[in-house]
Amino acid sequence: MAHYCDLAPGHPWHGPYHENEYGFPVGDETALFERLVLEINQAGLSWLTVLKKRDTFRHAFDNFDVDRVAAFGDADRERLLGDAGIIRNRLKVEAVIHNAGVIQTLREEHGSFAGWLDHHHPLPLADWVKLFRRTFRFTGPEIVGEFLMSTGYLPGAHRDDCPIHQRILAAGPAWYNT
Rank of each mutant, 00 (worst) to 15 (best):
A8S: 05
G10M: 06
P12L: 03
W13V: 04
W13R: 02
W13K: 03
W13Y: 10
G15I: 05
G15W: 04
P16W: 05
H18M: 03
G23E: 10
F24I: 08
F24K: 10
F24A: 12
P25V: 05
V26D: 07
G27A: 11
G27S: 13
T30V: 15
T30E: 14
A31L: 15
F33G: 07
F33I: 09
E34K: 14
E34R: 15
R35G: 09
L36N: 06
L36R: 05
L36A: 10
L36V: 01
I40G: 05
N41L: 09
N41T: 08
Q42F: 15
A43S: 15
G44N: 14
L45M: 15
L45T: 13
S46T: 15
S46M: 09
W47V: 07
L48S: 09
L48I: 15
V50S: 12
L51V: 04
L51S: 12
K52M: 10
R54T: 07
R54W: 08
R54D: 07
T56C: 08
F57K: 03
A60R: 08
A60M: 08
F61E: 04
D62N: 06
N63I: 00
D65M: 02
D65N: 13
R68A: 15
R68Q: 14
A70S: 11
A70C: 06
A71T: 02
A71V: 01
F72N: 01
F72K: 00
A75L: 14
D76R: 02
D76A: 11
E78K: 13
G82P: 04
D83E: 07
A84D: 10
A84G: 05
I86R: 02
R88M: 11
N89A: 09
L91V: 11
L91M: 14
K92Q: 10
K92S: 10
E94R: 11
A95F: 00
V96F: 01
I97S: 01
I97R: 03
N99Q: 03
N99R: 01
A100H: 04
V102P: 00
I103M: 03
I103A: 03
Q104W: 00
Q104E: 09
Q104P: 00
T105N: 07
L106T: 02
R107H: 11
E109T: 07
H110N: 07
S112Q: 08
S112W: 11
F113W: 03
A114S: 10
G115M: 00
G115H: 01
W116Y: 12
H119V: 03
H120Y: 15
H120C: 10
P122W: 01
P124F: 08
L125Q: 12
A126M: 11
V129D: 01
K130Q: 15
T135F: 04
T135N: 11
R137A: 13
G140Q: 07
G140C: 11
G140R: 10
P141N: 08
P141V: 10
